[in-house]
Amino acid sequence: MTLLEVDGLSAYHGLLHAVRGVSFTVPERQILAVVGANGAGKSTMLRTIAGAHKAAAGTVRFDGADITTRPAHRRVKLGIALVPEGRKLFADLTVEENLQIAGRHARPGPWSLGTVLDAFPILVPLRKRPAANLSGGQQQVAAIARAVMTNPRLLIVDEASLGLSPMAVDGVYECLRVLQDAGTTLLLVEQDLQRALSVADDVICLLEGRIVLSAPTGTVTRDHVTAAYFGLHRSERA
Protein backbone atom coordinates (compact mmCIF):
# COMPACT_ATOMS: atom_id res chain seq x y z
CA MET A 1 0.00 0.00 0.00
CA THR A 2 1.25 3.46 -0.82
CA LEU A 3 1.84 5.59 2.24
CA LEU A 4 3.34 8.70 0.70
CA GLU A 5 2.53 9.96 -2.75
CA VAL A 6 4.30 13.03 -4.07
CA ASP A 7 3.05 14.36 -7.37
CA GLY A 8 4.58 17.19 -9.39
CA LEU A 9 5.92 18.87 -6.27
CA SER A 10 7.65 22.22 -6.69
CA ALA A 11 9.12 24.42 -3.98
CA TYR A 12 11.32 27.48 -3.73
CA HIS A 13 14.22 28.03 -1.41
CA GLY A 14 14.21 31.80 -1.26
CA LEU A 15 14.36 32.80 -4.92
CA LEU A 16 15.82 29.51 -6.04
CA HIS A 17 13.45 27.06 -7.66
CA ALA A 18 14.89 24.22 -5.58
CA VAL A 19 12.38 21.44 -6.26
CA ARG A 20 11.00 21.21 -9.79
CA GLY A 21 8.08 18.92 -10.34
CA VAL A 22 9.15 15.90 -8.35
CA SER A 23 6.93 12.79 -8.31
CA PHE A 24 7.48 9.55 -6.43
CA THR A 25 5.72 7.17 -4.06
CA VAL A 26 6.81 5.36 -0.95
CA PRO A 27 4.98 2.13 -0.12
CA GLU A 28 4.30 1.36 3.51
CA ARG A 29 7.15 -0.29 5.44
CA GLN A 30 9.66 0.44 2.71
CA ILE A 31 12.85 2.45 2.87
CA LEU A 32 13.48 5.05 0.21
CA ALA A 33 16.90 6.65 -0.01
CA VAL A 34 17.29 10.07 -1.60
CA VAL A 35 20.73 10.93 -2.90
CA GLY A 36 22.05 13.95 -4.72
CA ALA A 37 24.76 16.58 -4.57
CA ASN A 38 24.67 19.59 -2.28
CA GLY A 39 22.01 22.00 -3.44
CA ALA A 40 20.15 19.39 -5.45
CA GLY A 41 16.98 20.23 -3.50
CA LYS A 42 16.88 17.24 -1.15
CA SER A 43 16.38 19.14 2.09
CA THR A 44 13.82 21.51 0.60
CA MET A 45 11.89 18.53 -0.76
CA LEU A 46 11.87 16.77 2.61
CA ARG A 47 10.88 19.92 4.44
CA THR A 48 8.04 20.47 1.99
CA ILE A 49 6.80 16.94 2.60
CA ALA A 50 6.96 17.55 6.36
CA GLY A 51 5.14 20.86 6.01
CA ALA A 52 7.95 23.15 7.17
CA HIS A 53 8.18 24.59 3.69
CA LYS A 54 5.45 25.80 1.37
CA ALA A 55 4.80 23.87 -1.81
CA ALA A 56 4.62 26.13 -4.88
CA ALA A 57 2.86 23.49 -6.97
CA GLY A 58 1.97 19.82 -6.89
CA THR A 59 0.46 17.66 -4.18
CA VAL A 60 1.58 15.59 -1.24
CA ARG A 61 -0.77 12.75 -0.33
CA PHE A 62 -0.33 10.79 2.86
CA ASP A 63 -2.29 7.61 3.40
CA GLY A 64 -4.63 8.73 0.64
CA ALA A 65 -5.37 12.19 2.04
CA ASP A 66 -4.18 15.39 0.40
CA ILE A 67 -2.03 17.17 2.99
CA THR A 68 -0.33 19.72 0.73
CA THR A 69 -1.62 22.73 2.64
CA ARG A 70 -1.59 21.34 6.17
CA PRO A 71 0.78 22.98 8.64
CA ALA A 72 3.71 20.95 9.94
CA HIS A 73 2.34 20.38 13.43
CA ARG A 74 -0.83 18.83 12.00
CA ARG A 75 1.21 16.50 9.81
CA VAL A 76 3.01 15.29 12.94
CA LYS A 77 -0.37 14.26 14.31
CA LEU A 78 -1.01 12.28 11.10
CA GLY A 79 2.28 10.45 11.51
CA ILE A 80 4.94 12.32 9.56
CA ALA A 81 8.10 13.18 11.44
CA LEU A 82 11.22 14.86 10.12
CA VAL A 83 14.66 14.62 11.69
CA PRO A 84 16.08 17.88 10.38
CA GLU A 85 19.51 18.32 8.93
CA GLY A 86 21.91 19.39 11.68
CA ARG A 87 19.82 17.61 14.34
CA LYS A 88 18.26 20.86 15.61
CA LEU A 89 17.73 19.68 19.17
CA PHE A 90 16.49 22.30 21.61
CA ALA A 91 19.95 23.04 22.93
CA ASP A 92 19.12 24.52 26.35
CA LEU A 93 16.63 21.79 27.17
CA THR A 94 17.63 18.41 28.53
CA VAL A 95 17.45 15.30 26.37
CA GLU A 96 14.43 14.14 28.32
CA GLU A 97 12.67 17.48 27.85
CA ASN A 98 13.38 17.31 24.13
CA LEU A 99 11.67 13.93 24.03
CA GLN A 100 8.77 15.03 26.24
CA ILE A 101 7.96 17.98 23.99
CA ALA A 102 7.54 15.65 21.03
CA GLY A 103 5.61 13.17 23.18
CA ARG A 104 3.09 15.80 24.24
CA HIS A 105 1.90 16.29 20.67
CA ALA A 106 2.26 12.70 19.54
CA ARG A 107 -0.07 10.61 17.46
CA PRO A 108 -1.37 7.82 19.71
CA GLY A 109 0.85 4.78 19.35
CA PRO A 110 3.31 2.42 20.98
CA TRP A 111 6.17 4.90 21.53
CA SER A 112 6.44 6.73 24.81
CA LEU A 113 9.33 8.03 26.89
CA GLY A 114 9.82 4.59 28.42
CA THR A 115 9.73 2.57 25.21
CA VAL A 116 11.89 5.08 23.34
CA LEU A 117 14.54 4.98 26.05
CA ASP A 118 14.40 1.18 25.94
CA ALA A 119 14.91 1.25 22.20
CA PHE A 120 17.72 3.82 22.36
CA PRO A 121 19.56 2.81 25.54
CA ILE A 122 22.50 5.14 24.89
CA LEU A 123 20.19 8.02 25.81
CA VAL A 124 19.40 6.72 29.28
CA PRO A 125 22.53 8.08 31.00
CA LEU A 126 22.18 11.35 29.05
CA ARG A 127 18.57 12.08 30.00
CA LYS A 128 19.25 14.98 32.34
CA ARG A 129 21.98 16.59 30.24
CA PRO A 130 21.33 19.69 28.17
CA ALA A 131 21.17 18.63 24.52
CA ALA A 132 23.96 21.07 23.66
CA ASN A 133 26.44 18.99 25.70
CA LEU A 134 26.00 15.85 23.61
CA SER A 135 28.42 14.60 20.98
CA GLY A 136 27.32 14.73 17.36
CA GLY A 137 26.44 11.03 17.29
CA GLN A 138 24.51 11.25 20.53
CA GLN A 139 22.65 14.29 19.22
CA GLN A 140 21.67 12.44 16.07
CA VAL A 141 20.32 9.53 18.10
CA ALA A 142 18.48 11.97 20.38
CA ALA A 143 17.02 13.76 17.35
CA ILE A 144 15.80 10.47 15.89
CA ALA A 145 14.42 9.46 19.28
CA ARG A 146 12.62 12.78 19.52
CA ALA A 147 11.00 12.21 16.14
CA VAL A 148 10.07 8.66 17.14
CA MET A 149 8.30 10.03 20.23
CA THR A 150 5.61 11.36 17.88
CA ASN A 151 4.79 7.80 16.77
CA PRO A 152 5.48 8.42 13.10
CA ARG A 153 4.26 6.17 10.35
CA LEU A 154 6.71 7.89 8.04
CA LEU A 155 10.06 8.97 9.44
CA ILE A 156 12.05 11.34 7.28
CA VAL A 157 15.72 11.61 8.16
CA ASP A 158 17.72 14.41 6.56
CA GLU A 159 21.45 13.66 6.42
CA ALA A 160 21.52 10.89 9.00
CA SER A 161 25.29 10.51 8.99
CA LEU A 162 26.58 13.97 8.09
CA GLY A 163 29.52 15.01 10.25
CA LEU A 164 29.54 11.85 12.34
CA SER A 165 32.37 9.41 13.01
CA PRO A 166 32.00 6.00 11.32
CA MET A 167 31.22 4.43 14.69
CA ALA A 168 28.53 6.99 15.42
CA VAL A 169 27.04 6.35 11.98
CA ASP A 170 26.78 2.66 12.82
CA GLY A 171 24.96 3.63 16.01
CA VAL A 172 22.52 5.80 14.07
CA TYR A 173 21.76 3.03 11.57
CA GLU A 174 21.29 0.64 14.45
CA CYS A 175 18.52 2.99 15.61
CA LEU A 176 16.97 3.11 12.16
CA ARG A 177 16.92 -0.68 12.04
CA VAL A 178 14.93 -0.70 15.29
CA LEU A 179 12.37 1.53 13.61
CA GLN A 180 12.28 -0.51 10.46
CA ASP A 181 11.55 -3.60 12.56
CA ALA A 182 8.74 -1.69 14.25
CA GLY A 183 7.14 -1.19 10.83
CA THR A 184 7.99 2.46 10.27
CA THR A 185 8.34 3.68 6.70
CA LEU A 186 11.59 5.53 6.18
CA LEU A 187 12.65 8.29 3.82
CA LEU A 188 16.38 8.92 4.12
CA VAL A 189 18.73 11.44 2.68
CA GLU A 190 22.17 9.91 2.75
CA GLN A 191 25.47 11.21 1.41
CA ASP A 192 27.13 7.82 1.76
CA LEU A 193 26.05 6.04 -1.43
CA GLN A 194 27.24 2.64 -0.30
CA ARG A 195 25.20 2.82 2.82
CA ALA A 196 22.15 4.25 1.04
CA LEU A 197 22.20 1.38 -1.45
CA SER A 198 22.66 -1.26 1.22
CA VAL A 199 19.82 -0.17 3.57
CA ALA A 200 17.17 1.12 1.21
CA ASP A 201 14.65 -0.74 -0.92
CA ASP A 202 14.51 2.01 -3.51
CA VAL A 203 16.69 4.95 -4.36
CA ILE A 204 15.98 8.23 -6.08
CA CYS A 205 18.63 10.64 -7.18
CA LEU A 206 17.98 14.38 -7.38
CA LEU A 207 19.84 16.72 -9.65
CA GLU A 208 19.01 20.43 -9.75
CA GLY A 209 15.60 19.80 -8.28
CA ARG A 210 14.57 16.98 -10.61
CA ILE A 211 14.59 13.23 -10.21
CA VAL A 212 17.18 11.84 -12.61
CA LEU A 213 17.17 8.28 -11.37
CA SER A 214 14.54 6.23 -9.59
CA ALA A 215 15.01 2.52 -9.16
CA PRO A 216 14.95 -0.39 -6.73
CA THR A 217 18.38 -0.62 -5.10
CA GLY A 218 18.83 -4.18 -6.34
CA THR A 219 18.79 -3.13 -9.97
CA VAL A 220 21.30 -0.26 -9.90
CA THR A 221 25.04 -0.22 -9.43
CA ARG A 222 27.07 2.36 -7.64
CA ASP A 223 28.35 3.64 -10.98
CA HIS A 224 24.83 4.11 -12.23
CA VAL A 225 23.95 6.29 -9.29
CA THR A 226 27.23 8.17 -9.41
CA ALA A 227 26.62 9.05 -13.03
CA ALA A 228 23.13 10.33 -12.22
CA TYR A 229 24.45 12.14 -9.15
CA PHE A 230 26.82 14.24 -11.24
CA GLY A 231 24.46 14.59 -14.18
CA LEU A 232 26.60 12.49 -16.54
CA HIS A 233 23.50 10.92 -18.09
CA ARG A 234 22.11 14.17 -19.19
CA SER A 235 23.79 14.38 -22.57
CA GLU A 236 22.57 10.88 -23.40
CA ARG A 237 19.03 11.63 -22.26
CA ALA A 238 18.80 14.88 -24.12
Binding site: A72, H73, V76, K88, F90, A91, D92, Q100, I101, A106
Partner: peptide
Protein backbone atom coordinates in the same frame (compact mmCIF):
# COMPACT_ATOMS: atom_id res chain seq x y z
CA UNK B 1 4.85 21.93 32.72
CA UNK B 2 4.38 20.62 29.22
CA UNK B 3 3.15 24.00 28.09
CA UNK B 4 6.27 25.61 29.57
CA UNK B 5 8.50 23.20 27.69
CA UNK B 6 6.60 24.00 24.50
CA UNK B 7 7.21 27.66 25.15
CA UNK B 8 10.94 27.20 25.74
CA UNK B 9 11.27 25.01 22.67
CA UNK B 10 9.38 27.50 20.51
CA UNK B 11 11.52 30.32 21.88
CA UNK B 12 14.69 28.51 20.85
CA UNK B 13 13.63 27.26 17.45
CA UNK B 14 10.04 27.78 16.25
CA UNK B 15 10.70 25.96 12.98
CA UNK B 16 11.86 22.76 14.66
CA UNK B 17 9.16 23.08 17.32
CA UNK B 18 6.45 22.80 14.67
CA UNK B 19 8.26 19.77 13.24
CA UNK B 20 7.81 17.92 16.53
CA UNK B 21 4.16 18.88 16.67
CA UNK B 22 4.16 22.08 18.73
CA UNK B 23 1.60 24.54 17.31
CA UNK B 24 3.99 27.50 17.48
Amino acid sequence: TGFGRDMRATAQDPDTATLVGVPA
